[in-house]
């Protein structure tokens, strides 16, 4: 890992966490996240994502290692570090029996804002997130998607330099999810560093510039999204024919198969082009009406990295 630089929003060194009962959630992870980055932290359930985020937000005590946020040591300047961070947790953690605007205003107060300033800021954020009309109603009456947006408003009330989102779009419908993506992209462009954990890998692919994959408490990949996706050598496309297809012709691809009489799957290397496939099919009178990429590219890579890491751990344990 490179030496620490002041422009990093987060620097994590040899971070370890062992919970009471002996579970080792983190096994000496190292991570650097640049200021202004839109960063994805991915991993299977129980990999250590939420523990890492919990330590950053001071909700979990670390066992060993050190964490620096914007150049300040978390142990030494904990309160200062907390003031730089806004958190959107995975589960709803606001008082459901408070009015919507009070949830946001209170949080502003806990960050030292006057009630007047917190209220003004809360109203701005509630307008931006489409919750202004609901501001006087009880928080429990909001839909799931609205509750997620309320937590984003709450996390931003003190204008943090870094926003941490743990599964922010879980249970949110596609339209709302896209709206949240646009909002997050906008505040990232304004300079807010964003760290995101998500199970929707397409979300990470669409939003994030850099990524770390964590598995069994260890970082197994830490790279830019572009470099990571470049590691993929093969992609699978699904083609839908206009008329039923009896058999497939030879095509300049790694592999091809007929799924049903109107659906064809083709596997291509990165240096192979789809136009060659279309040319051959058209030559045999097969017209393709539409097509799609079968898997999320990131999902494929994610699975491969995690499976490789699991295999390495198993081999290590056997030896």
């Amino acid at each position: 890992m490179s030496n620490a630089v002041e422009s990093n929003a987060v620097e994590i060194y040899e971070l370890e966490k062992t919970y009471e009962g002996g579970t080792r959630a983190l096994k000496g992870i190292e991570l650097a996240i640049a200021e202004g980055d839109f960063f994805a932290l991915l991993g299977p359930n129980g990999a250590g994502k939420s523990t890492t985020i919990g330590i950053l937000c001071s909700l979990v005590n670390k066992t060993a290692g050190s964490v620096r946020v914007f150049g300040h040591d978390l142990d030494r300047d904990r309160a200062w570090v907390k003031a730089q961070i806004g958190v959107v947790p995975q589960e709803f953690n606001f008082n459901q029996f408070e009015p919507v605007e009070e949830v946001v205003i209170n949080q502003g107060g806990f960050y030292g804002m006057t009630r007047k300033a917190a209220k003004k800021r809360a109203h701005e954020l509630l307008k931006q997130l489409g919750l202004y009309d609901k501001r006087e109603g009880m928080a429990r009456a909001l839909s799931g998607g609205m509750k997620r947006r309320l937590m984003i408003a709450r996390a931003l009330v003190h204008d943090p330099r870094m926003l941490i989102l743990d599964e922010p779009t879980a249970g949110v419908d596609i339209e709302l999810r896209r709206g949240m993506w646009d909002f997050l992209t906008q505040i990232n462009k304004q300079g807010t560093t964003i760290i995101l954990t998500t199970h929707y890998l397409e979300e990470a692919e669409a939003l994030c510039r850099n990524i770390a994959i964590i598995n069994e408490g260890r970082i197994v990949e830490h790279n830019s999204m572009r470099n990571l996706l470049a590691k993929l050598s093969q992609e699978t496309f699904v083609l839908y024919a206009r008329e039923p297809v009896e058999s497939l012709p030879e095509m300049p691809v790694v592999g091809s198969r007929l799924i049903d009489d109107e659906t064809i799957e083709v596997d291509l290397n990165r240096d192979q082009e789809l136009t060659g496939v279309f040319d051959v099919l058209r030559g045999h009178g097969i017209v393709i009406e539409r097509m799609k990429n079968k898997t999320s590219r990131l999902e494929e890579l994610f699975l491969r990295l995690v499976q490789d890491d699991d295999a390495a751990i198993n081999a290590e344990e056997r030896s």
């Binding site: 907390k82 961070i85 947790p89 949080q107 806990f110």
Partner: peptide, 12 residues
């Protein structure tokens, strides 16, 4: 209800 976290993550 876990809203104690509102305080624990704050600089208070």
């Amino acid at each position: 209800a876990r809203h104690v976290e509102e305080l624990l993550v704050s600089p208070m």
